[in-house]
Design a binder for these strands. Structure first.
Length: 328
DNA sequence: GGACAATCGGTCATTGGACC
DNA sequence: GGTCCAATGACCGATTGTCC
């Protein structure tokens, strides 16, 4: 927006009625720019030295009602993330809102889905929030036929479930691999969810550390993987090997911040730490400490740690794992 | 070489959990 | 109770890689 427009569309107001009048006038008439509402702010904004990285208290946006369209729900999909959190996504008959095509909409938790009570065939009203995030605003019409949908059992999925792709666990297991290879973990470039799905579906990855044993030759035999792709994947796997122990812990899902990881040097040392030692760390309370102790004692993670020891990954070395178990 | 697919980075919303 | 943060997911455009 040009500076002359800012001048033309900035008005002093002294009452709520003034604000309502200007907002309605600009909403009802064509403007030379795209807008989703009006902004009210004090006559003078604070000087720069009072600036803070938070929403300003001296200004507030008053958005126009969003554009809304009704469409049919084709499918209800349940997504299970690496921590076992379940989210519900609706597949929709594609609809256009502003200049965007919307095909799916995330409606959040299972509880929220049950509250909406949405099944395939229902008609829902969808609008765009912010810069284009689709959102269900209401159920416009309910289908007479109401198929019974089986949602994943929320009790079954949690931070320590699905360390292998057994029945019902593929989604969470793949989500674990995506996290492991992602920017928060081992930072593998070009190893995406699709790559992991392919490796899991062809039985090449059955445990979190199985990919360490893959060779370019074995990767080359997978459908859709050429020489270059096989070499590239293998190179990323080899680079990941060299990541420091702290990164491996994050990649495996340890609930620790980078600062909290600073003093951690090896698996055996870390898994021996009792609750009260964890609690000395900034940002670790009772619950987090209990989670950390549980994390390092998980049998599934012990198995992964053993695989990493056999692969000579730093921090999981032989001597560090020779001690069978921990009792505080 | 062109078509297509996959990936990445950016922006923003929602939810729930943890901390203080 | 307020605040912060992580996790998850939507969309888009640009870039890169693969296949035919």
């Amino acid at each position: 927006m040009g500076f002359t427009l800012v001048r033309d569309y900035t008005r002093p107001v002294s009452s709520v009625e003034d604000v309502i009048r200007w907002r309605e006038r600009w909403f009802a008439n064509p403007l030379p720019f795209v807008t989703d509402g009006v902004v009210l702010h004090q006559a003078r904004s604070p000087s720069g030295r009072y600036w803070r990285n938070k929403p300003a208290l001296w200004a507030v946006a008053w958005k126009y009602p969003p554009a809304e369209q009704v469409t049919r729900v084709e499918r209800v999909m349940f997504r299970i993330g690496r921590t076992g959190k379940i989210t519900v996504v609706l597949a929709l008959d594609p609809l256009q809102l502003d200049d965007k095509w919307v095909r799916r909409v995330n409606i959040g938790s299972l509880a929220r889905w049950r509250f909406w009570d949405i099944v395939p065939g229902d008609q829902v009203a969808v609008s765009l929030k912010g810069q284009g995030i689709p959102q269900v605003t209401r159920v416009a019409w309910r289908s007479v036929e109401r198929p019974v949908l089986t949602a994943p059992d929320a009790e079954r999925y949690h931070a320590f479930s699905c360390f292998t792709p057994q029945a019902g666990c593929r989604q969470q297991f793949i989500a674990r691999l995506v996290w492991l290879s992602g920017p928060q973990g081992l930072m593998m470039n070009g190893v995406s969810e699709a790559s992991w799905r392919m490796l899991v579906e062809h039985g090449r990855v059955k445990e979190l550390a199985d990919w360490l044993t893959l060779t370019p030759e074995s990767l080359r035999t997978l459908p859709g993987v050429g020489d270059k792709q096989a070499q590239r994947l293998h190179q990323q796997f080899m680079l990941a090997r060299r990541q420091p122990f702290q990164r491996w812990l994050l990649a495996l899902g340890a609930p620790l911040s980078a600062e909290q990881l600073a003093g951690v040097t090896g698996w055996q040392q870390t898994k021996r730490l009792p609750t009260h030692i964890w609690q000395r760390q900034a940002g670790v309370g009772d619950k987090r400490a209990a989670q950390l102790v549980a994390f390092f004692r998980q049998p599934a993670l012990q198995r992964v740690a053993n695989s990493l020891r056999q692969q000579h990954i730093a921090g999981f070395a032989d001597d560090a794992l020779s001690d069978p178990d921990v009792d505080n």
